[in-house]
């Protein structure tokens, strides 16, 4: 499997990274280099093997249904927007979204 120009552009768009047309050839070459190298995995027999889903083999920890204080709780709108490039009345402000 190797990428063509259109796929490189499509992937860049899915990843929301602007690329210039003149960057496509070398990006394609780099990505194909990596993908070609990865290709060797096709040799491995994976018949009947379960995919790894988690490294940790314990039951999922759960929190109790109470409202928390601190970082994992609410009531801190000023902290939430403290680092935002643009805010207004504790809202994040972004370019107009068209639905």
């Amino acid at each position: 499997m190797s990428l063509d120009d259109a796929t490189v552009k499509k992937v860049a768009n899915l990843a929301r990274i602007a690329i210039r047309d003149e960057d496509v050839p070398h990006l394609k070459e780099e990505l194909n280099g990596i993908l070609g190298w990865i290709e060797q995995l096709q040799e491995v027999d994976i018949e009947g093997v379960e995919a790894m889903t988690s490294v940790v083999e314990t039951d999922i920890p759960m929190r109790t249904d109470i409202t928390a204080d601190g970082p994992t709780g609410g009531g801190q709108p000023e902290n939430i927007v403290a680092n935002a490039p643009k805010t207004e009345d504790h809202f994040f402000v972004v370019p107009k979204v068209v639905e």
């Binding site: 768009n13 990843a15 929301r16 990274i17 602007a18 939430i80 927007v81 680092n83 935002a84 490039p85 643009k86 994040f92 972004v94 370019p95 107009k96 979204v97």
Partner: peptide, 20 residues
């Protein structure tokens, strides 16, 4: 949107692409 760099564009998705 929430922190860090933003490269402005009037279109939200273009803003994402340029910022990233």
């Amino acid at each position: 949107v929430k922190y860090g760099l933003r490269v402005h564009d009037d279109d939200i998705h273009e803003m994402y692409r340029k910022t990233r």
